[in-house]
Amino acid sequence: MSDATTAALRLERLRFGYGGTTVLDGIDLAVEEGNFLALLGPSGSGKSTLLRLIAGLERPESGRVFAGDRPVAGPDVERAVVFQNYALFPWMRVVDNVAEGVRKARPGIARTAARVRAADYLERVGLPGVAESYPFELSGGMQQRAAIARALALESPFLLMDEPFGALDPVNRARLQDLLVELWQGRAPRPTVVFVTHDVDEALLLADRVPVLGASPGRVITDFAVPFERPRSRAALFGEHRFHALRESIAEALDADTLARLAAA
């Protein structure tokens, strides 16, 4: 576990609930700068809530979130977020959606310059020539690419992603996974990524580290380092016995949590 003083992101004794239900309890987590973290958990483990707490979209009942050395008090452009439902504004052209991110990263930039940069980002996520389209003219995968472009345009040190590829077909999902790793590695310094998913393979393919959440209440039940060298390929991973061993351990941890919950009920 990393030293708390060098951590880019630190969660301390985090607790969250509403209406008498405790959603998350006793969350302690420290993430090193530039790390790619995949928060893995079954539905009901509060993993999306945890991401919203880190983003500042929800306030914890108790405990604190630190980004850098500052406590998180609300949403901030230094923590870019990509949501599951490609949430572009449907009334803005795709390029203007991305330009909103550019404008925040570079206050005072002229409108045309912001649009040029935005078109640049769109090209980088593999979307040339759709700048002047509206979101409804794009497929789900393309909209999610544009949402990623908007998050990248913020040039934030943190990138928070809430099951961003959950609604995509397998082909698009694989393409976007590769694109994400490429973009993350291509930036210096690398942003710290927190990626929420319930897909074990996705977590192991993308992340440096996989904390696993148990359900009711959500808490970290185990935390795995992912040792595979980059660049990773799906074919190589599936041929590697350590990959299957890790998968097995994660499945066991989740099963044990489920059984303990059933026994308690």
Binding site: A80, F83, F89, W91, E100, G101
Partner: peptide, 25 residues
Amino acid sequence: GRHRDNAAVLGFSRLEYLRKVVFPA
């Protein structure tokens, strides 16, 4: 909610939120 969330994480000011999100929505 997703539009509110996006406006928040994009750091929209109240005026921007009204003009670019609430009004068109």
